[in-house]
Design a protein around this nucleic acid. Sequence first.
DNA 1: CCAGGTCACGATTCCCTTGA
DNA 2: TCAAGGGAATCGTGACCTGG
Length: 330
Amino acid sequence: MYTTGVRTTSLAPMLAENGTAGVARALSEPSWVEVKWDGIRAIGTWAEGRMLLHARRGTDITARYPELTADGAPFLPVADAIVDGEIVAFDVHGRPSFSLLQNRMHLTRPREIEREVVRTPVVYMLFDLLRLDGHDLTGLPLRERRTLLEDVIADLDAPVQIPPVFDDVDAALAASREFGLEGVVVKDPRSRYRPGQRSPSWLKLKHTRMQEVVVVGIRPGKGDRESTLGSLLLAVPEPDRRRLRYVGRVGTGFTDRILRDLLTRLEPLRIDAAPLDGVPVLDASDALWVRPEVVGEVEFANWTPDGVLRHARWRGLRPDKRPDEIVVES
DNA sequence: CCAGGTCACGATTCCCTTGA
DNA sequence: TCAAGGGAATCGTGACCTGG
């Protein structure tokens, strides 16, 4: 079982560009809309009755998902195939949860992997078929690859599924937002599969949210960011408005000019002790604290279970807002 | 034996250089 | 002039090493 982590040959997955609803609607009529699964992209190579899994950059992750790859895993009724899909873990509400996956995605010890098979089961959502019984299918249109995928791999057990395709961008966007999903991917059904390419034939439309935050600290930067800062430590007021609650860091979304401006504003506010409790040791270890006076706005994907902003990027200062005016969006 | 630091890997986003 | 791609920064986890 020492295949984990080794780089072996496999196809590189085709990637989606960031898109807008307008461009996505124009991609085809009717539209081809898939759920954007919040999981781990994986290319599956089926041969000699066994599935090998490779992550986006080619890492062999076969050993990490025995329910998809070891004895007893679903059996594809073909001699050989290469499939493309996403490994997904679901929370109690039935929503894909990347934070659940993080419990198991880096495990290497067989005992711990087996424990997570039971505790954090995954489903392999297949959305493409790249090779079948010796034939390269990447030159076929998506519509035909999908038909072959459905024909050939029809009756699989629970851990391997073929998710549905929708035909209305706006309805799918609304429904996915309603259900708390990350977004949708709109594809051109006429498009070929281009391994390793980021193609405008696939567009991801992601839901994002905004949150006002108060800056409570600075973490030093490295490399190009050595002379300015690495990330900002953020907080929001507790419901009682008297204390602050730590909500994580933001380290992207800045231009060099904005970084220099932030540093100029924050330097005079430096204080010795943290202005709040509950900052994880790792974040606090090299932090430079500031008086909680500077309010800004971040765009983010969702809240983690422990109340931290996920994928936050800086959107700008809110000089019109005082820290105690911040409203926490649920 | 534990805590802390560093690394690896999974992910994303953005800047900046490159080349057409 | 503009798009594409490389590079580097971020987050979050576990593995590993080291010093007390």
